[in-house]
Write a protein that binds this DNA or RNA. Structure first.
Lengths: 192, 192
DNA sequence: AATGCTCAGTCAACACTGTTGACACGGTTC
DNA sequence: GAACCGTGTCAACAGTGTTGACTGAGCATT
């Protein structure tokens, strides 16, 4: 909402051409399903019914396409608003909720694509805007910004290790237990 | 130490041929310096003075080469032995210590290469053997294994976000502060 | 001594990747 | 009508990981 000029539109906004939206949609689905590396531009183009070169024409590069299409928008913001004493557990529970598979798929794809610097810095920036700064603003005590970064680091680690710690097949009870335990650990950084 | 048969030697052990050791050494250095994706097999081969095909001949694939050459062996084990009440901070402090750049480089390369499944499962296995099981064995209460996995998740997240939270240029004081804060959060899962 | 066997090492090629340049079409503006 | 611009297409590029056919040396067996 910062600037509504005529270029650099979000790929799924109304200003984008149908082709761009088709590419963005196919890219999003394939990135989430197969990860950054395994989803090739040619495959994305084919799924969108478009020439591979056109994907690059519109989005510049694979890195940029990924960064523009994969994200976690305003998912976290609502859960930073409630009582501060339980925000850790609420964040974790939200992230692990069985019905939020797509959020996890996006988040996981980004975390796993960290080998690409462009993706990394874009991700860090999103995290800062959408989580760290908002959370830090509500915290009190010393090093609020640092502690908020560490909270985000914990969430990243949880997603990275989600397979080892339960995975998509975990029961709701298991998820709740992880949310309780990990949420408490996160909370230690928010209200020590 | 499980089986000392004549094949499947560790690439830097005495049983390996000089060429294999040269490849392993070059691969390690390049992987740590440039990351998994940016270090090509042809580049590694050139640095080792060897034909690229020979690298594959000896190590099977790039994934396997990476998994065999990059690791964090017994780095964590010693710090799991001391008093249990401060193991969180000691682990974190050790991981962030300014003189342990190479450990961080290895760890970071692995975490960032998570887009490759082979690397991921190998990493998870190492984590289980070298950290989770040993830590879990010392813990008491419910869900010790799950909680130990969550500890490892926190360390992964810290490495993943290390740039955002200080990075290699952080002062020793900053590192100590992170170790104190993050260590306390980790500790919450070990001795709640 | 001659044979065969294994294994390190080499070379050219494969299929695939992301990306680019030259070109064609269609609509808008002068 | 002419010049332009953005969308779309095609073939090609350089680079990637990987493979198959080949050489050659050392060693064992007959």
């Amino acid at each position: 909402m910062e600037h509504a000029s005529d270029d650099e539109q979000a790929p799924e906004a109304e200003g984008a051409t149908p082709t761009q939206r088709a590419i963005a949609l196919a890219a999003r689905e394939l990135f989430e399903a197969k990860g950054y590396g395994a989803a090739s531009i040619r495959e994305i183009a084919k799924a969108a019914g478009v020439d591979p070169a056109l994907v690059i024409r519109h989005f510049g590069s694979k890195d940029e396409l990924f960064a523009r299409v994969i994200g976690f928008d305003e998912h976290f913001a609502p859960h930073l608003d409630g009582p501060l004493g339980t925000v850790g557990e609420r964040l974790t529970a939200y992230l692990l909720d069985a019905s939020h598979t797509q959020l996890r798929a996006s988040f996981s794809a980004i975390v796993r694509a960290a080998d690409h610097e462009r993706v990394r810095v874009e991700f860090q920036d999103s995290l800062r805007r959408l989580l760290v700064e908002k959370l830090s603003a509500r915290m009190s005590g010393d090093d609020t910004l640092l502690r908020a970064w560490l909270v985000s680091a914990q969430l990243v680690g949880l997603i990275h290790s989600w397979d080892a710690v339960g995975g998509e097949s975990a029961t709701p009870e298991a998820r709740a237990q992880v949310a309780r335990l990990y949420g408490a650990a996160i909370q230690k950084l928010i209200t020590p």
